[in-house]
Computed example of a mutant assay.
Amino acid sequence: MAGPKDLDPSSSPRALLGAELRHAREKAGLSQDELGQRLFVSGSFIGQLETGTRRMVPEYARMLDVELGTGDFFERNCGAAAKSQYPEHFAEAAEAEATATEIREYAPLLIPGLLQTAAYARAVCRAYQPTAPDEAIEELVTARIERTHILDDPTQPLLWAIVDEAALRRVTGGPEVMAAVLSHVVGLIRRSRVIVQVMPFRAGAHPAMEGSIKLMDFDDAPPLVYFEGVGTGRLEDDPTTVRQHRRTYEFLAACALSPENSLALIEAMAQDYAHEEQP
């Protein structure tokens, strides 16, 4: 009997690979937890592979082929499913973000990516890679702005961002760029498309001073939390870890300015930046 065919990279390869994984697992008579134990991962991780929320890497693909008796099918096809326009450390989180129903993010230093304008994103990407050719920078900017299109839907996903005052006061790209990006954020808030709170300097110490947090919830997969550093990122599905950082986020929301006061501050700062551009 002929073995499974290669997946077509043009037709959502990750979803196809997930469907094949579910089929092979059920054919082998294994639950998600049982298969996860054999790979030394959680059952929820297997579920996320099956729904396409998580990407399959070669290490797990080889183990799946052995455990499920699928020859080299998963190893052969995981490359197509792993192709991404995003930096390697962020690719899995960006792709999970696109399928999330709720996103909660604390941003200590930058306007969150989903709220950025092209000019602001360009200034950030150029700061990250000061010697990169313009073409490479524009590819990164295009990928970042494409992410923002998930907000084109009037209701989903829910995006709730807590932005540190430092991100608003760091003049990234110049006053004109800051005026534009803050006005863009104001527009999203006034259209009731996003919830934004500002963590003011006067709030003092808080439990997320060491870095950013992004929590993502899904209809058909367990929640995830994403941590990011300089050139690194980690996506975590451990229920205890997710629960701990959800509590942290709730505490941050309690310490931050109310949505109404946050909007007033962002509007005032946008106007201040705009006035700086006047001769």
Rank of each mutant, 00 (worst) to 15 (best):
T51E: 11
E277K: 14
A167I: 04
E250Q: 13
G211H: 02
Q244E: 14
L215V: 09
P154E: 03
G3E: 15
E276V: 00
R38N: 09
I162E: 01
P154M: 03
S10E: 15
L224H: 05
K83E: 13
A268T: 07
E95Y: 05
E20T: 04
Q48L: 07
A24S: 13
G204L: 02
T240E: 13
M269W: 12
G3V: 08
F218T: 07
D33N: 12
Y226R: 01
P223D: 07
V194T: 06
V57Q: 14
M199S: 06
R193L: 01
G174K: 06
L151I: 05
A167C: 01
A80N: 12
D33R: 11
S212Q: 09
T248K: 14
P9R: 07
P133S: 10
P222L: 08
Q278E: 15
P4S: 14
T232K: 04
D272F: 10
R193S: 03
A143C: 14
E75F: 15
R243A: 13
C78H: 07
F40S: 14
N77G: 02
R25Y: 11
T99N: 09
Q37M: 13
I145S: 00
G18R: 07
A61H: 03
I213W: 02
R202C: 06
E95Q: 10
L49P: 00
R104Y: 07
Q48I: 07
S12W: 11
P259N: 12
P133V: 00
R76G: 03
A166N: 04
W160V: 05
Q156H: 12
R190T: 07
E135R: 14
G29N: 08
F40T: 06
R14C: 13
E267M: 08
K83S: 12
S212V: 13
D134G: 10
V177R: 07
A179I: 00
P157W: 11
A61V: 00
V230G: 04
Y60I: 00
L235S: 01
A203E: 11
L263W: 09
E267C: 04
A80S: 15
P200K: 11
H23W: 14
D238A: 15
L115V: 04
D65Q: 09
A143Y: 08
A94I: 08
A15C: 08
A208F: 00
E267N: 05
I213P: 01
E139P: 12
V57I: 09
G18P: 04
N261Y: 15
M63Y: 14
P108L: 04
Q116N: 12
E105A: 10
L252Y: 04
V230E: 11
I46F: 08
G113I: 04
P130W: 07
R191I: 04
E236K: 01
V163R: 03
I189Y: 10
S183R: 15
Q32F: 07
Q37F: 05
D272I: 05
T99Y: 10
A2C: 08
F73Q: 00
F74V: 06
E95P: 02
A221P: 02
D237M: 03
D237R: 05
E75V: 05
M199I: 01
C255T: 08
